[in-house]
Design a protein around this nucleic acid. Structure first.
Lengths: 201, 201
DNA sequence: TAAACCATGTAACATGTTACATGATTTT
DNA sequence: AAAATCATGTAACATGTTACATGGTTTA
């Protein structure tokens, strides 16, 4: 139940149309809550039906026409309620760690190359966040209203730093692995399938 | 498309029934890929229909009867393929960061108490992982087959350490916040709803 | 033998993903 | 006026969640 509240937050920051929201989800908000345009349109419909937002009465309703929404008092109240309500942390889901665990059983295959690729992607994301920090939160600018936004951005920066370093560590560990190939102990049925030709980083 | 591969990995480590799998997902595997028993039974049915696993012909099929599965050669091959295939990192989704961002708009409400609670939950999880590390990976035991499994556990330990520290930082930041109350700049419609009575940590 | 628990499962729904459809506006 | 792009939307499906149903086994 987070997408509607992500949309309410975005609309409170600035009333927008579906496509504008989609673009903002590709940037700031999407950094910790992504959504496609189909999800957003679907959710905008529900929020409007529930009386939490309304379409700005600017112009026409036709199909190819832009339609902007703003948050109604009931929507703001719902967002405040949700923000203050306790929530348990959801268990973390990470396909890459799952693959490493699988690699311990069926062999490492070409996974090392993908680890390197992920490392680079995280490093790039880190650079992007740091650029945003330089631009939006220079040392002078330290108003209380910005503190929370900056704190959230710091989480993004710290997380990408974390993963970059962890992947460095993992790659170092791989170099110490014997032949970097099939380490098994299980029921032994099929051949390890492909294994050579790593795709470079 | 990760749940079937999580199940294949678990079954290769040790053939199991649905409930046994559920229990193992509550422990080791579930630490980075959780699943409920309904998901697991549903997926076991699909994997069997696809010829990737089969029920051990031990005994009866009746309703309240235990039914164990093992991985077939095709299943092992599929897991090896999936493990080696490149995958893009999925964008990270974090409701707590979303709530902090919302708090920047509608006010902090009682969110501080929940931050403290999350901090304690992460600290507890960290302690659990460290206990597992002590038990399963003592310094003597350093066989190559264990390296990958240990690496994955380290990720869990490092992540919980990360969040514990980050939440400490966030809470320190909160103490510097003016009245620790409603910081707004937007369309101003509704009252900030509830705000007082934090629920202690 | 009733209650508690073990084990597998069904059903309904919420959320997220992928592919495609359609009208309006801008560019060539 | 054809092509590209903008903007909103439908449809089908995959995955995840919540509530409940059913038969068997153990324990009070």
């Amino acid at each position: 139940m987070s997408l509607p509240h992500a949309i309410l937050t975005a609309l409170l920051e600035k009333p927008s149309s579906g496509l504008e929201l989609t673009r903002r989800f590709d940037r700031s908000i999407g950094y910790f809550w992504s959504a496609t345009h189909q999800q957003i349109y679907r959710e905008l419909g529900k929020l409007e039906a529930d009386g939490l937002i309304r379409a700005l009465p600017a112009e026409q309703p036709a199909r190819g026409q832009k339609k902007s929404y703003e948050v109604l008092p009931a929507g703001r109240a719902e967002l405040a309620r949700w923000t203050a309500a306790p929530q348990d942390p959801k268990p973390h889901r990470d396909p890459l760690l799952l693959r490493l665990r699988a690699a311990a059983v069926v062999g490492t295959g070409g996974i090392e190359a993908d680890l390197r690729r992920h490392r680079e992607l995280h490093a790039r994301q880190l650079a992007e966040y740091q650029e945003i920090e330089r631009r939006d939160f220079p040392p002078e600018r330290n108003a209380p209203e910005d503190r929370l936004r900056h704190l959230v951005l710091r989480a993004g920066i710290d997380l990408e730093t974390f993963w970059t370093r962890w992947l460095d560590h993992a790659l170092a560990e791989f170099e110490q692995l014997p032949g970097a190939e099939s380490a098994d102990a299980g029921s032994a049925d099929a051949p390890p399938a492909e294994s050579r030709h790593a795709e470079g980083a």
